[in-house]
């Protein structure tokens, strides 16, 4: 089978390659995130849990960024795949005594398959219709996870999910859990970078620029969109499973529509379509939630206001702030 050639300059190699991908501001943000992780490891306590969750959501957002950022589509329903991942892992490990890792991979396979058959018809939609169709996908999954009590145990949820591990080696301590998650985030991040700069990734970014333009250059738009959707679903499923292994308990609320809105917030706060955006957004938003939680009843009010202000005044998120400074410097 001959595949059409996408005419595009290869990304430069070496140091120039590095500079073309990141600006100094983004690298700085990543370093801050890494330092925060180290701080959490050093001090332990509650910050440890916050950073664990941030890492899990970072994995989710890296996947979502593929579909939303690079491809320019919207899915408000990725929580559906996290739900499949989480419940798949929980059921396989608790009911059938599987090892955590095979359970995670099996759930990912199931999620990917679902994403394939759901995405094929759904991705023909655009704009608000796509947003609502995917949103309803998430809501249907949420309702099913409540109603199908024989499989999901409904509101009761699943408890006693074993922690991550291979064979006899299990990750029991909270600190090692965070280290494992951080390594997995780094792996997912590296994988996403490789895919972003591949022929496929460049095709995706062409789609976000102009679907017609991309099609004219020989990008198979529907197929590329579908693959991006499946990739996002795989990341979401892995994140869902990791949540189950890390916390040890899941319930429908974990994977409810609120998860969609929260991960969207993370992506927008971090910077949708940027490389480091998903990780930065996940860390910043998770920390923000904890900071605001201190102010009692007003936490959600403050959260919503921060989100609105970000959307209005910094629509490209934190990662793009560096470009803002640079432009000002050039103007001056």
């Amino acid at each position: 089978m001959t595949s059409p050639v996408i005419i595009s300059a290869k990304p430069p190699a070496g140091a120039a390659k590095f500079a073309s991908r990141f600006d100094r501001f983004q690298v700085g943000l990543l370093v801050v995130a890494a330092l925060l992780t180290c701080a959490a490891l050093a001090y332990g306590g509650f910050l440890l849990t916050v950073m664990q969750l941030a890492m899990i959501y970072a994995i989710f957002c890296i996947g979502l960024n593929f579909f939303m950022g690079y491809t320019g589509q919207a899915s408000f329903g990725q929580n559906a795949f996290a739900c499949v991942g989480g419940y798949g892992s929980a059921i396989l490990t608790v009911q059938y005594g599987w090892e955590p890792l095979p359970a995670l991979l099996a759930s990912m396979a199931v999620s990917g398959f679902f994403a394939l058959i759901i995405g094929y018809p759904t991705l023909r939609l655009r704009g608000h219709y796509l947003a609502m169709a995917t949103f309803s996908l998430g809501l249907i999954t949420y309702d099913i996870s409540i109603q199908w009590t024989s499989v999901t145990q409904g509101y009761m949820g699943y408890a006693g999910i074993p922690p991550m591990g291979i064979g006899n080696w299990t990750v029991e301590s909270e600190r090692w859990k965070l280290v494992t998650l951080a390594v997995l985030v780094a792996f997912g991040f590296w994988l996403s970078l490789r895919m972003r700069d591949s022929r496929f990734g460049r095709g995706l970014r062409a789609i976000s620029g102009s679907e017609n333009g991309a099609a004219a250059l020989g990008v198979r738009v529907p197929r590329f969109k579908l693959i991006a959707f499946v990739i996002a679903a795989l990341y979401a499923s892995a994140a869902g499973s990791l949540f189950a292994y890390t916390i040890g308990f899941i319930s429908p609320e974990v994977y409810g529509p609120a998860m969609s809105i929260m991960t969207f917030t993370m992506l927008f706060v971090g910077g949708v379509g940027t490389i480091v955006g998903p990780i930065i957004g996940a860390v910043v938003t998770s920390l923000l939630q904890e900071v605001v939680r201190g102010s009692g009843h007003y936490q959600d009010v403050a959260y919503a206001i921060v989100l609105l202000v970000t959307l209005i005044y910094a629509p490209k998120g934190i990662s793009a702030l560096g470009a803002l400074f640079r432009r000002k410097k050039e103007e001056a």
């Binding site: 919207a74 609105l308 209005i312």
Partner: peptide, 10 residues
């Protein structure tokens, strides 16, 4: 578009 949708949800 999607930023506006998210804003209305907020």
């Amino acid at each position: 578009l999607f930023a506006i949708i998210l804003a209305t949800l907020a």
